[in-house]
Amino acid sequence: MTNANKIVISSSTKNLSKVRNFVENKANELGFDSNEINQIILSVDEACTNIIKYTHNFNENENIEVITELKNKEFRIIMKYKGRDFDPNKMQEPNMNEYFNNFKVGGLGIPMMKKFMNKVEYIHVNPDMNSLTLIKSIQNTR
């Protein structure tokens, strides 16, 4: 991959498009197809949106560092940010039939991340550093 593999944004939804463009360019270089690229940028968007809304409470003084790397045939997008401990892997998956029957709203960001990526890894380092990694495998046929 070429160019810088890291961007830092202030924690605001107005910066989501910057993150999407950054990740889209990297995914393009790796040869993912357009459907996979959409799934990757959507997952990163959902992760950053949750950090901005729930971890940083829209406080633009906070930052999110987004790093991309290629490791063992995996495209890894790592988000580093300060804030409380929240592991998306511990969130229970919604029952979608129940979700639609009850006209529920919200709560789909994490299920989307898990559905569209091959792996989601989360590490919390005390007192307040977090690292969330979204992983998409690169197929051997490519």
């Binding site: 999407r20 959409n38 968007d45 959902e46 949106t49 960001g109």
Partner: peptide, 16 residues
């Protein structure tokens, strides 16, 4: 060109 879960949520919020 693009929709995330925030967009999907708007349709869920008003269909009922």
């Amino acid at each position: 060109s693009y929709i995330s879960s925030a967009g999907l949520g708007v349709f869920m919020a008003y269909i009922e």
